[in-house]
């Protein structure tokens, strides 16, 4: 194998592996912080089919973790969540953070680069539940995200 090709493959696989670690690290951080386990979703394969249908064009590689019965307080958890997400985000870039006291909801979006496009991690905490989503974005989806970052979490995290 040519050294250049090997280097490209290694770089691509390293990026993808790193992103998987980011997802797992976030999941573990939530489990550790709140003392809960991610909810087992029966027939996840079937669910993934519907998610595939529903998800925005240009998104792939969908990973999902759902948590229930989190004890979130309206006033006290914002700073703690910020710290937890900052610690768990690793090399990912923060893109969007939305706090809503009105809806008692926090949304964090991080991005990372993969070989061909971008990877997005979305964490949403609301009403005693948390959802972590990892998704790969192709060129068009990435550009749409950059056009309106604040709305990026909508199709995935809620």
């Amino acid at each position: 194998m040519r050294p250049r090709l090997l280097a490209v493959l290694l770089a691509a696989s390293t990026g993808a592996f790193g992103a998987d670690r980011d997802f797992d690290r976030l999941v573990k951080a939530v489990e550790s912080r709140f003392g809960v386990q991610r909810t087992y979703i029966p027939l996840m394969g079937v669910a993934s089919f519907f998610v595939k249908v529903a998800r925005p064009e240009g998104a792939s590689g969908f990973k999902l973790a759902v948590f229930e019965d989190l004890k979130l307080s309206a006033d006290g958890d914002g700073a703690a969540l910020d710290r937890m997400m900052a610690d768990a985000s690793g090399d990912l870039r923060p893109l969007v953070r939305v706090r809503s006291r009105r809806n008692h909801e926090w949304t964090y979006i991080f991005t990372g680069e993969t070989g061909k496009a971008a990877r997005m991690l979305i964490a949403t905490f609301a009403r005693g539940e948390a959802t972590i989503v990892e998704v790969d974005l192709n060129r068009d989806a990435l550009l749409r995200l950059m056009e309106n970052p604040a709305r990026a979490g909508g199709p995935f995290g809620k």
Partner: peptide, 25 residues
């Protein structure tokens, strides 16, 4: 202020993110 606000939003498009987007244009 973020802690007091009903809603607060931060958006960060740093140079890395902008370069990433630029690559695909």
């Amino acid at each position: 202020l973020a802690a007091k606000a009903e809603e607060s939003v931060d958006v960060t498009l740093d140079s890395g993110m902008l370069q990433l987007g630029g690559k695909f244009l």
